[in-house]
């Protein structure tokens, strides 16, 4: 499923990232196989992603492009 429709506070595994942003996402730790959790909704339809000890704010557009499965 798209990360946008994933439930909050549930451990997820990233399975697919958009090719165009692969390097940028990887440099922040968002690689296929990464374990993450959606911490909360943010203003403007985004989500706060907990990835290990990192906290990343992702916008709606990107959330649609990332695919995850429940871990």
């Amino acid at each position: 499923m798209a990360l946008l429709s994933a439930p909050l506070s549930v451990p997820l595994t990233l399975v697919e990232v958009p090719d165009a942003m692969r390097a940028r996402l990887a440099s922040l730790g968002l690689r296929p196989g990464a374990q993450l959790t959606l911490a909360q909704r943010t203003t403007g339809g985004g989500r706060l992603v907990a990835l290990g000890s990192s906290r990343l704010a992702l916008g709606e557009t990107l959330l649609r492009q990332l695919r995850v499965v429940v871990a």
Binding site: Q35, A39, Q40, R41, T42, T43, L48, A50, G52, S53, R55, A57
Partner: peptide, 21 residues
């Protein structure tokens, strides 16, 4: 140690300051 799964005070503040309203 991985630091995963720990809710720090930073997270608690974020729950408020990035909340939709």
């Amino acid at each position: 140690g991985s630091g995963e799964g720990r809710i720090s005070w930073s997270d608690k503040v974020d729950r408020i300051v990035t909340a939709p309203v």
